[in-house]
Nucleic acid binder design. Structure first.
Lengths: 188, 188
DNA sequence: ATTGGCATGTAACCAGTTACATGATTCC
DNA sequence: GGAATCATGTAACTGGTTACATGCCAAT
C-alpha cells in the first residue's frame, strides 16, 4: 500500500519497466522511496491486476523483451486519493546512527570507517542530485523554472533529497573529527 | 536483528522497562530508530531468552509492576560485534515526499496541509532536541563537553536528529511558499 | 463520568529482504 | 575469458504494523 503509491507517483513521469523502476528506485536516484527489484516486479503485477496500471510488451533485438507499465485513469484516481489522505509520520531507521549511539561501548575504528563510508556515499549522491537539478533548471532560476513548468513535485522532492545529503556531509565531517579526537585520547 | 541492536544501544544509558523504551522510541526522542510498543515487548522477551539482557521486576505501589531490563556482558559483546560489522545503506521512505512528488496530479490543498503538518511537527521536535542538547552541554561548549564526558555517541546522534529537523523546517517553508504560488496560479 | 497515563502482552496480518533461478549481450 | 548490463521472475523468511485485550490510578 505504501510502495504502491511510490510506483504510481513515479509513473507520472511516463511509462517504465520493472527494470527501469528498479534503477530509479535504487540507491542512486531514490529521493523519497527505496525498493528492491523483487518488490517492484511483484507490486507491478498486483497493480496491473487491480487495473491501476497497464502493461505493454516491447520486443527488442539483442535484448530481452520488456514490459512497459503506464498509469490508467483508475491509477491516477488512486494516486489522487492517496494525496488527499492524512499522512502518517515516517519512521526514521538508520543503522549507522545505531552504531554511532553505541560507539562508546563498540569498535571505535569500525564506526569511524562506517561514518567515512557514509560521507563518501553522501558526496556521490549529492553530485547526482546537483546534476539532476542542473538538468531540470536548464539555466533558468528557480522562480523562472516554477513559472514555466507544469510539474513542481519532482523538483521539490529532489531538493529535499539534496539537502538531506548536504546535512549528511556536514554531520559526518564533524562526527569524524570528534571520533578522531576520541581515538587519540584513548591511545594515551 | 535490527531493532535488537537499537535496543541494546539504548540500554547503554541504563536499565529501562518496555514502557520506558516505548516512550524513548516514540516520535519524541527517537533520533535514530522507531518502534511500536508491541515490537519492543516482543524483542525484549527474545533478548532475555538469548541472555543478552536480564530483567528484574520492580513492584510499585499505586502503579502496575514493571520489568526493568539491563545489558548483560553477552549483550555488550553482541553490541560490540554489531558496531564492527559493515553497515548497509539505509532505505529512505517518506510518505510525505511521495505525496509531494505526486502533487501535480493530486490534491494540492491536502498536500499543502501535509507539508504544513510536517513543518509544525519538525518545529516541536527541534525544540525537544534543543532542550536535550542544553541538558547535555550544561553550559559547557561542545569542545569542553567532549573533553569531559565518557560517552560521545548520544550527543552525535542527537545532533544528527537536530540537523535533520532543521532541514525539514527550511525545506517545508520553501515548499509551502512554492505550493501557495502554484495554488494562486491555478485559481486564475 | 471520562480521558489520559502507566504497564504489559497476544494474534493476525502485511510489507520487505534474501536467496535462488535463467539467459542473452556487451564491454574490458 | 570474465564481469557487468539488460530483463524477468519465484520462494522462503524476517521484520513491522494493526487490532485486540486487561486493569488500576490520577486528574479534570
Amino acid at each position: 500500500m505504501a510502495l504502491r503509491n511510490a510506483i504510481l507517483a513515479t509513473l507520472l513521469e511516463g511509462e517504465a519497466s520493472g527494470y527501469d523502476l528498479s534503477k530509479g528506485f535504487d540507491a542512486s536516484v531514490a529521493n523519497f522511496w527505496m525498493a528492491t527489484p523483487q518488490q517492484l516486479y511483484k507490486e507491478l503485477e498486483a497493480l496491473a491486476a487491480q487495473g491501476l496500471v497497464t502493461a505493454r510488451v516491447v520486443e527488442q533485438d539483442r535484448r530481452p523483451n520488456k514490459r512497459l507499465f503506464s498509469l490508467t485513469d483508475a491509477g491516477r484516481e488512486a494516486l489522487r486519493e492517496f494525496t488527499a489522505q492524512p499522512a502518517k509520520i515516517t519512521a526514521i531507521r538508520d543503522e549507522l546512527l545505531v552504531k554511532v549511539q553505541a560507539v562508546d561501548a563498540g569498535d571505535l575504528d569500525a564506526v569511524r570507517r562506517a561514518v567515512a563510508d557514509r560521507l563518501e556515499y553522501a558526496r556521490a549522491k549529492l553530485a547526482r542530485y546537483d546534476r539532476g537539478r542542473a538538468r531540470m533548471l536548464a539555466g533558468r532560476t528557480e522562480d523562472e523554472y516554477f513559472d514555466q513548468v507544469e510539474r513542481i513535485g519532482p523538483y521539490l522532492t529532489l531538493m529535499r533529497g539534496r539537502s538531506f545529503e548536504k546535512e549528511n556531509i556536514r554531520w559526518a565531517e564533524r562526527a569524524l573529527s570528534i571520533l578522531d579526537k576520541r581515538a587519540a585520547r584513548r591511545a594515551l
